[in-house]
């Protein structure tokens, strides 16, 4: 069952999200991966503003394939989130509310999600073709020199994600695994 959900994520709506919920997101999200994260945290360290308003924002860990002529984007699935763990707690403390990616997060990131109320949403790794169909608008807004790693503003419609980490410390990876694990006899 997928629940339709309109962004942005607010503390109020985050209360109702639980690890394992399937959502179809509609609204604005921003792409960023390692290099862009590094620059954003450096900007904060130097007291500079970020390329977009981080308060209430959702970041998608993704860098797409080039768009074919006549299309706005190519294949657009998630990258491994763990590479952003070094930077994520800082952005969460600044007001980031949602992260979309794949793969497990560090304890520091999970703690920050509980403390500052943010969620981690899983997208299906390797399914970039299907994901690109939910992206209706793309605009590069910063770090264009990073190529596919630039920050883009995406307008998404019914973008499928699953809640992996909720604001209560729930973790789908741990809960799901515990349910299906067969202990050695």
């Amino acid at each position: 069952m997928y629940k339709k959900f309109t962004l942005p994520l607010t503390d109020e709506v985050l209360k109702d999200l639980k690890a394992g919920d399937n959502l179809l997101l509609t609204g604005v999200i921003y792409t960023a991966r390692d290099a862009a994260h590094k620059r954003m945290v450096e900007a904060l360290d130097h007291g500079k503003s970020l390329p977009f308003d981080i308060k209430g924002a959702t970041i998608y860990y993704m860098s797409p394939t080039p768009a074919r002529p006549g299309r706005i984007i190519g294949s657009a699935g998630p990258t491994t989130s763990g590479r952003m763990d070094a930077y994520a707690p800082r952005l969460i403390a600044e007001g980031l509310k949602g992260m979309i990616g794949k793969g497990s997060r560090s304890k520091a990131v999970k703690d920050a999600m509980v403390k500052h109320k943010a969620v981690y949403l899983g997208a299906i790794g390797g399914a970039g073709a299907i994901m690109s169909k939910s992206i209706k608008g793309v605009e590069i807004i910063a770090y264009e020199e990073l190529g596919a790693g630039a920050i883009s503003r995406l307008e998404v419609e019914n973008f499928p994600v699953t809640v992996v980490n909720d604001i209560y410390g729930g973790d789908l990876y741990e809960e799901g695994k515990a349910k299906y694990q067969v202990k050695a006899s």
């Binding site: 993704m62 860098s63 797409p64 394939t65 074919r68 190519g74 294949s75 657009a76 699935g77 990258t79 299906i124 790794g125 390797g126 399914a127 970039g128 073709a129 299907i130 690109s132 169909k133 499928p160």
Partner: peptide, 18 residues
Amino acid sequence: RILENVEIAGKEQIPLCQ
């Protein structure tokens, strides 16, 4: 969804994975 992705990739010439 993974299998649906495989269909779309071939039919619409979008790489399977980015």
